[in-house]
């Protein structure tokens, strides 16, 4: 078995579409899923790195397993259903505490799934939608959407507070809040691949720091925060 270099965990209430998202990304299709029992994981080869992605069970019954799955995670994808505000609330109430075991510099992404079920479909959303939110919100366009992207952005900022992270040190909320549809595939690759790209420098840093591992000097690159804008 290939040893994963890094772990990414999907968290979120049951039925928000975690399994479907992962399935869409890995198998390139959408099909009816069965409720996840306990957890499942995939290995994804990204460049020369092996990334394990854990799909967890949102069911209350398996809630206790979450901490273990998150232990040492390098990135966590908090998933909610854009049509159910409660699923976003749950992320804060139930799931956030599970991430205590994740590594200290763990990245967080917040993904609102099932965007295809909202009125405006997948026409926009994601970062683009965010930039235009001021405009769009004033119109009637988003009226039927239960969860707005800026709710997710607000949660992201809460998470940073919770984790006692400096906003300037980590990727901006705009970069880390996504809206997707596992059904149409909208934005799905983008979520995963954005994270993968952010995770690679962390792998390199871990390798450089890891005491037991041999350090490949030829591969070594000084680790730099990807976020180094002068003002934010």
């Amino acid at each position: 078995m290939k040893k994963p270099d890094v772990k990414i965990v999907l968290l979120g209430d049951m039925n928000v579409g975690k399994t479907s998202l992962l399935h869409r990304y890995m198998e390139r299709r959408f099909q009816e899923t069965v409720s996840t029992v306990g957890g499942a994981f995939y290995l994804k080869q990204w460049r020369s790195y092996n990334i394990s992605i854990w799909d967890t069970a949102g069911r209350e019954q398996f809630h206790g397993l979450g901490s273990m799955y998150c232990r040492g995670a390098t990135a966590i994808i908090l998933t909610y259903d854009v049509n159910h505000l409660q699923s976003l609330v749950e992320l804060e109430d139930r799931f956030l505490s599970l991430t205590d075991t994740a590594s200290t510099d763990c990245l967080f992404a917040i993904v609102g799934n099932k965007i295809d079920l909202t009125d405006e479909g997948d026409a926009e959303g994601g970062a683009e939608g965010l930039k235009e939110q001021g405009k769009a919100l004033s119109g009637r366009a988003r009226a039927s959407r239960r969860v707005r992207l800026d709710d997710a952005v607000a949660l992201y900022k809460k998470i940073l507070k919770y984790r006692m992270l400096d906003e300037k040190e980590v990727p901006a909320a705009e970069e880390m809040c996504f809206e997707t549809s596992a059904k149409t595939g909208y934005n799905v690759d983008h979520v995963f691949e954005t994270l993968f790209d952010m995770v690679v420098p962390i792998i390199l840093r871990q390798r450089a720091e890891g005491p037991s591992q041999t350090v490949d000097i030829t591969n070594y690159k000084p680790v730099k925060r990807t976020q180094s804008r002068c003002c934010d």
């Binding site: 029992v37 854990w54 398996f62 232990r71």
Partner: peptide, 22 residues
């Protein structure tokens, strides 16, 4: 043996490297 009849795998580091069996 985990909740809900799961067979859970765990390493001494406290992490799971394999998905559970049901």
């Amino acid at each position: 043996a985990g909740p809900g009849g799961l067979g859970m795998f765990a390493t001494v580091d406290g992490i799971s490297q394999r998905a559970p069996v049901h």
